[in-house]
């Protein structure tokens, strides 16, 4: 079910009253147009599951804390804050789980620039070799599979959202949306 952000805590409290007393996970999905925070709750006795979705935008990415309703939410919210950059309001400021994480770019967003910077920064010779097209990471060696597939086995394009403009993205822009044959 979908809740608005402002009724999230109240809604979860009501669900808890109905028996959903166990929090399974809090996570988020980056759907390209915005983030969706997900709250998975469960009724242990009645063996029912419920998923609560809250849609938030990239610029306005915050949710209220649900720790008062579910104390288990503590670490899940910290993980969501760090991996997605979704602020959680109403809780004590806590350390990053990933200490010494130097980037402020949340890793699990689709806009995370991980190919461009993190690989070549460590392995300059890999970057040079990649330019010369001699040797590369395993995904490079599968360059032959990047040929466009026959239409029958690539059903439907899915909206992927902004993806990292990696080193290979420019070369295979046409294939990016198809279902197969693409590595990144």
């Amino acid at each position: 079910m979908r809740f608005e952000r402002k009724v999230l805590v109240q809604g979860l409290g009501e669900l808890k009253g109905q028996g959903y007393g166990y929090l399974v996970k809090i996570t988020a999905v980056d759907y390209g147009k915005g983030l969706t925070a997900l709250y998975f709750i469960r009724d242990l006795a009645g063996n029912r599951d419920e998923t609560v979705e809250v849609e938030i935008g990239y610029d306005d990415a915050w949710v209220p804390t649900v720790m008062d309703v579910y104390p288990a939410a503590d670490w899940y919210e910290r993980e969501m804050m760090e991996m997605f950059g979704i602020g959680v309001h109403g809780r004590v400021a806590s350390r990053l789980l990933l200490e010494k994480w130097d980037g402020v770019d949340p890793p699990l967003r689709k806009s995370f620039q991980w190919n461009a910077e993190y690989r070549t920064a460590d392995n300059k010779d890999v970057a040079a070799a990649r330019k010369a097209n001699t040797v590369g990471a395993p995904s490079e060696r599968q360059a032959g599979r990047n040929a466009p597939l026959p239409a029958a086995s690539a059903p439907g394009a899915t909206a992927r959202g902004p993806r990292a403009a990696g080193k290979k993205g420019a070369a295979r822009g046409a294939d990016d949306k198809s279902g197969g044959g693409d590595k990144r």
């Binding site: 990933l98 890793p107 991980w114 993190y118 690989r119 460590d122 392995n123 990471a137 395993p138 995904s139």
Partner: peptide, 9 residues
């Protein structure tokens, strides 16, 4: 984990 962002290769 060759392509991970947090690993020393």
């Amino acid at each position: 984990w060759w392509e991970s962002y947090n690993i020393v290769r």
